[in-house]
Simulated assay, not measured.
Amino acid sequence: METTKTTVPVLELCGIDMHYGYVQALDSIDFHVNPGEVVGLLGDNGAGKSTLLKIMSGAHRPTGGKVQVHGRKVELDSPSQATAAGIQMVYQDLALVDALDIATNLNIGREILRKGIFGLLGFVDHKAQRKRSEAELDKLGVRTAAMTRPVEMLSGGQRQVVALARSATRVAGDHNGVLLLDEPTAALGYEQTQQVQALIRRMADQGIAIVLVTHNLQLATAVCDRIAVLNRGRKVADIATEDTDNDALVGWITGARPSMFE
């Protein structure tokens, strides 16, 4: 007798509604992402992508529906609760501290203190932080500038890589979490976009689940395993990337193509 292997989604949203007064921003959205999967979240401006992303990251609480992480229902009332559940958001502004070096940015919030009395006084062990950062970046296959270089001296692509790597190190582990990426290549050139694209795939290969919000169809079709499309607060498509094309995606985004679920 054959048994079917099932994968429990890392993150699953069931019947999500979101109201702002009389305006319904999201209408019964079902969405999930599996371990090691990259799911693109596409839609025109006002489609509901940002609202759904804010619900996943704990910035907004939905009006209705439920959120599950690794099969367990969770209440994401704040970004800190989402972080505790293994969900990391990488914003368009990257949230890096320009004046600090790469290693310090990678270790913000999880600093290594020096041993003894200096640690009790809050002195940071910068050498240990640099060593840990180098090991973590090597695991991700990331090559950046020296760990001591200030972020303000990095290129746009290097800054994006540092921001992605910082979040990836926080969700990697025995129970890999979720990375939420909001337009990660919006301000990058072709070569820098290729670098970020390769990093996204490497992170997915290590078991990290990734949700990618982007207007770049070329990036979505190149890096995503599956694509979900929102239109006016409703999910109109959820399909394997290999089973669709740009014309179909544009049709769902603009509303010219009927929903898959009607």
Rank of each mutant, 00 (worst) to 15 (best):
R132H: 02
R132V: 01
A135C: 07
A135R: 12
L137Y: 07
K139I: 00
L140P: 00
G141L: 11
A146E: 13
M147G: 01
T148C: 02
T148A: 07
T148E: 12
R149E: 15
P150G: 06
P150K: 05
P150T: 04
P150Q: 04
V151Y: 14
V151A: 15
V151D: 03
M153E: 15
M153T: 14
S155I: 05
G156H: 11
G156M: 13
G157F: 00
G157H: 09
Q158S: 08
Q158W: 12
R159Q: 10
Q160W: 11
V162E: 13
A163S: 11
A163V: 07
A163T: 04
A163W: 13
L164S: 07
L164Q: 00
A165N: 05
A165T: 10
R166V: 03
R166P: 02
S167T: 05
S167A: 15
A168C: 14
R170P: 00
R170N: 13
N176E: 12
V178R: 08
V178E: 12
V178P: 09
L180V: 06
L181V: 11
E183F: 04
P184S: 08
P184W: 10
P184M: 10
T185E: 02
T185R: 02
T185D: 06
A186Q: 02
A186V: 00
A186S: 11
A187M: 12
L188W: 11
G189E: 00
Q192M: 05
Q192N: 06
T193F: 06
Q194H: 12
Q194W: 10
Q194P: 01
Q194E: 15
Q195K: 10
Q195V: 03
V196L: 05
A198G: 08
A198H: 14
L199A: 06
L199Y: 07
R201V: 11
R201C: 04
R202P: 02
R202K: 15
M203G: 07
A204H: 15
Q206P: 03
I208F: 13
I208W: 13
A209W: 06
L212W: 09
T214G: 02
T214N: 02
Q218L: 10
L219A: 01
L219H: 04
A220D: 01
T221L: 13
A222D: 12
C224F: 08
I227D: 09
A228W: 15
A228S: 14
V229G: 03
V229C: 01
V229I: 03
N231Y: 14
R232C: 15
G233T: 04
R234M: 13
R234H: 14
